[in-house]
């Protein structure tokens, strides 16, 4: 049963006047990096906290390998979580922070030194946490998550505050962990980063599921929003030919026209029929950011 699949089913959390998470269901598969996306305030953090037994759901369940977090026999050996970068005592050294966790979980002390080396923090191990940069804090958080060599990793906005090199390091680490067959669930609002990192996507907005699937599936589901970029010296003729076919044409301000509602061969055929000369004809797939913005548009982040 401990395959490390995460199953969220009907998960709901009401705060006084807000449905932070609203009947949310999705699954996260092992061996893949799953991006958990949503605008700020969409309920990502609340969902992760319910998964980890830190917040009590109003309704629904969240299980890891078939078990609720609270029922796991050895939680840190099953799940490693990085929830916020600043979660260590300011006056405690990094290595002591890890030793405290080792103590509580019954891991040997050396484990702290090992993970410190894994995340490249050994030189700063004996420095106090308040002297750590944001990037070092993230690394310490990841070190703590790796202590129990867990099958499942849950990370909330891990790229926050990392410099480009740190982001690259994190991406490589998470991909490597997923390649070892582990489940990796990463929440983020950094879409470009997710496009490089994630295999699967779970997109939520206003506490509800918007899309779930592989990155390609999610992008394809938005294929209708693909546009065709076209350049022509005869703008007016082409515009009238295309609008006759119920396509919408908008100048992109750089001398080209953006055409929606018709595919690229359709534009070419219409141009040939109208005897219009074409200088460029390109299908523009929407990037993740556009898809994301379209999917979550109108679901106000501030509720």
């Amino acid at each position: 049963m401990s395959d490390g699949q995460i199953v969220v089913s009907g998960l709901t959390k009401h705060y006084k006047n807000v449905r932070a998470v609203d009947n949310l269901s999705f699954t996260v598969e092992p061996g893949r990096v799953t991006g958990f996306l949503g605008p700020n305030g969409a309920g990502k953090t609340t969902t992760l906290r319910m998964l980890l037994n830190l917040v009590k759901p109003t309704a629904g369940t969240a299980t890891i390998g078939g078990q609720r977090y609270a029922d796991l026999k050895d939680p840190l050996r099953t799940v490693g979580a990085v929830l916020e970068a600043s979660s260590a005592h300011k006056g405690r050294t990094g290595i002591n922070h890890l030793r405290v966790i080792c103590g509580a979980a019954g891991f040997p002390r050396q484990r702290a030194d090992e993970v410190m080396a894994t995340v490249g923090l050994t030189p700063a191990a004996k420095r106090k946490f308040k002297g750590y940069s944001l990037g070092m804090r993230q690394r310490l958080g990841i070190a703590a998550a790796l202590l129990g060599d867990p099958q499942v990793l849950v990370l909330d906005e891990p790229a926050n505050g990392l410099d480009p090199e740190g982001i690259r390091w994190m991406r490589d680490l998470l991909k490597a962990l997923a390649a070892q067959g582990r489940t990796v669930l990463v929440s983020s609002h950094l879409l470009s980063e997710m496009q490089l990192l994630a295999d699967d996507l779970v997109i939520i907005a206003a506490g509800k599921l918007v899309r779930q699937g592989t990155v390609t599936q999610v992008m394809d589901s938005m294929a209708h929003s693909a546009q065709v970029r076209v350049r022509t010296p005869q703008v007016e003729e082409l515009t009238s030919a295309l609008t006759a076919l119920k396509a919408t044409v908008t100048p992109n301000g750089e001398g080209a026209l953006m055409v929606a509602g018709i595919d690229a061969p359709g534009v070419g055929r219409a141009a040939l029929k109208a005897g219009v000369e074409l200088h460029e004809l390109t299908l523009e797939r929407p990037d993740l950011e556009r898809v994301f913005l379209e999917l979550t548009a109108g679901k106000a982040a501030i509720r």
Binding site: N53, L54, A70, L72, S86, S87, H89, A105
Partner: peptide, 18 residues
Amino acid sequence: TSEFQHQTVTTTFLSTPH
């Protein structure tokens, strides 16, 4: 209170859900 002050309570309850 230092657990709440420094947000380490998250880590603490993750290690020990009970």
